[in-house]
């Protein structure tokens, strides 16, 4: 129960951070991804500041937190252990980048914007869940002995 409360709290701060930084607005994200517009002065580097600030905070925070023997509410840290760069990683990242560039949504911002009034957001999330389900049917079912969370749980 306590873990659920922490997850709710962390999710709320995460969603508020995406809102404050305007990353829930696809037009703002695309204005960053349009690096090629930089020579004409049309580039918005804001997203780089979002990622840099999040990264610096996470590096410092993880250093402190991971010194502990275990998390405050759980028996172990659930950390990905793989270090190999395989075709799934590269193809998956390419496929993801393609979709991200087409619309300007990645999973977090899309979910945070779910109830903000755009029908396209709802359609995007529905399609995204179908995409995840297709992956699960094609690649994940054979490994039902291991949960998606146990294998390599990232985001």
């Amino acid at each position: 129960m306590a873990q659920i409360v922490v997850a709710l709290f962390a999710g709320t701060i995460f969603g508020a951070g995406l809102t404050v930084s305007q990353m829930i607005n696809p037009a703002k994200v695309l204005a960053f991804l349009d690096v090629a517009a930089a020579p004409g002065g049309g580039w918005d580097p804001s997203l780089a500041f979002v990622m840099a600030a999040a990264l610096v905070t996470a590096i410092a925070g993880y250093r402190l937190v991971l010194r502990r023997a275990h998390p405050i509410l759980a028996p172990t840290f659930n950390l990905p252990t793989r270090r190999d760069i395989d075709w799934r990683l590269l193809v998956g990242a390419t496929v993801f980048g393609f979709g991200w560039g087409l619309v300007g949504y990645c999973p977090g911002p899309a979910l945070a914007a779910l109830t903000l009034g755009s029908g396209k957001t709802i359609v995007f999330i529905a399609a995204m869940l179908i995409g995840m389900a297709i992956y699960h049917v094609l690649f994940d079912r054979r490994n039902t002995g291991m949960s998606a969370g146990d294998r390599s749980d990232k985001g």
């Binding site: 306590a2 873990q3 922490v6 997850a7 709290f9 962390a10 999710g11 701060i13 995460f14 508020a16 951070g17 995406l18 809102t19 404050v20 930084s21 305007q22 990353m23 804001s46 997203l47 500041f49 979002v50 990622m51 840099a52 600030a53 999040a54 990264l55 610096v56 905070t57 996470a58 925070g61 993880y62 402190l64 937190v65 991971l66 502990r68 275990h70 998390p71 405050i72 509410l73 759980a74 028996p75 172990t76 840290f77 659930n78 950390l79 990905p80 749980d153 990232k154 985001g155």
Partner: peptide, 24 residues
């Protein structure tokens, strides 16, 4: 606002790791 929002995202990730041991 980008840096403040980014800090909040990072803080949320650290919180989830500190208490639940999970990647955000």
């Amino acid at each position: 606002s980008a840096s403040i929002g980014g800090f909040m995202i990072g803080a949320a990730a650290v919180t989830l790791m500190a208490f639940n041991g999970r990647i955000a």
